[in-house]
Write a protein that binds this DNA or RNA. Structure first.
Lengths: 221, 221
DNA sequence: ACCTGAACACCGTTCAAGT
DNA sequence: ACCTGAACACCGTTCAAGT
């Protein structure tokens, strides 16, 4: 842009030339985390991935926490922002669904999110639209924030619990839950006993939208 | 009870007499976990707590996972089961609130719960009553299970996120969220910017019941 | 300025041996 | 039967030194 820019003397880079860059580290971290979740991202593993030593990483990120936050920013920045309907109630539901989808695609995100609440700037777009739509539906700003919070609890809970469920389903040994459901006491737990084997099927179904609409129905005046 | 029981010859206990018992291990684990969360419970720390070596523990519990499950059973067994109102809608809300309270008192429980879905038998009491009340309110058993699921997502999400929030508040360095909220762009995020500093106060408020009632309102016919 | 290697203070768990 | 000690394969991070 500025034709002079090129001739501005670059502060002469002294010392050893870099072998790895922050971007390279982040890209590798993304790969690792997408494949095996946050749990599988270790500084040592990451170092191996970029062909370096664990300590070299600390020259490009402050520590592991910063690494995760950077990863989050990065993910959030790439999210699509769907066009939202005019009608405020529909706008609210659509924004919440978009937030949910953004998270559902990437289970690891939630693990980090919960640890440091809310996304980066890019993620605030969802909150903005949900709160704003709630106000447009007639809530006070205070109640709109509370409504957003309820939706966030519901959404985060859904993502976390269903992700955990999928992880359990992945390693095939029977879970604690299955063992418990196999022999329910009909005397003390008649309703659950009558549902029996259908429990697993029913709770595996995706009912996010259903629950969201119920919640919104109850939250709005 | 059986007067003969005493004279039934005990299978002679051979070998070294035990120095620690399973109960002792569990009691120590409970202490550790209540104080510092699941994260602070390590086999090594626990061994030190009972005055033994890490490997001695493996004679009383299979591994760390079993230890956590035992801890859970134990906690669930001690829960009060409040009297529930006759009216099914009130019964539903009361049971959900009781479930929430049972969890809220013990943040560590949720960490384990999420990892292995649902509590032990004792915890199923909540599910039983919520599903049953939902049926009594006119839902089909299938929709009643879905309703329970939505309530469970909402409840678990609330507990997890608020627990994480409290953990962040505990170590006083400013969180990522605070930094982001400090300078919101009024152009792109006008609603959040207008809420500004009130966000922290508003989201710190306990609105579990409010959200629950909204959700129930929307879920029931 | 950037990278390396050794070291520290941790993990859960296995294995072989002691009482 | 119960416990111990040494060992294995891991962690994140600090520190002093090399290029």
């Amino acid at each position: 842009m500025d034709p002079m820019a090129q001739s501005v003397p670059q502060r002469p880079r002294v010392g050893r030339p870099p072998r790895i860059s922050r971007e390279e580290v982040l890209a590798a971290a993304r790969r690792v985390v997408e494949e095996g979740g946050v749990g599988s991202l270790t500084m040592r593993r990451l170092a191996a991935e970029v062909g370096s030593t664990p300590m070299a990483l600390y020259h490009h990120v402050k520590d592991k926490e910063e690494l995760l936050l950077l990863l989050l920013d990065d993910y959030a920045a790439g999210l699509a922002r769907p066009a939202l309907p005019e009608d405020p109630r529909e706008r609210l539901v659509t924004a919440a669904l978009a937030m949910h989808d953004a998270l559902a695609g990437c289970a690891w995100v939630v693990e980090v999110l919960v640890a440091d609440d809310l996304m980066s700037d890019a993620g605030l777009w969802y909150a903005e639209n949900i709160v704003d739509a709630a106000v447009a539906c007639g809530l006070t700003p205070e109640r709109a924030v509370h409504a957003y919070r309820s939706i966030w609890y519901y959404t985060a809970g859904e993502i976390i619990i269903r992700a955990a469920g999928r992880r359990r389903a992945a390693d095939d040994r029977p879970t604690h839950r299955e063992r418990v459901f196999a022999d329910l006491d009909e005397e003390t737990l008649p309703r659950l006993a009558s549902i029996g084997g259908r429990w697993a099927t029913l709770t595996a179904q995706d009912t996010y939208r259903q629950g969201l609409e119920a919640l919104v129905e109850g939250l709005l005046p």
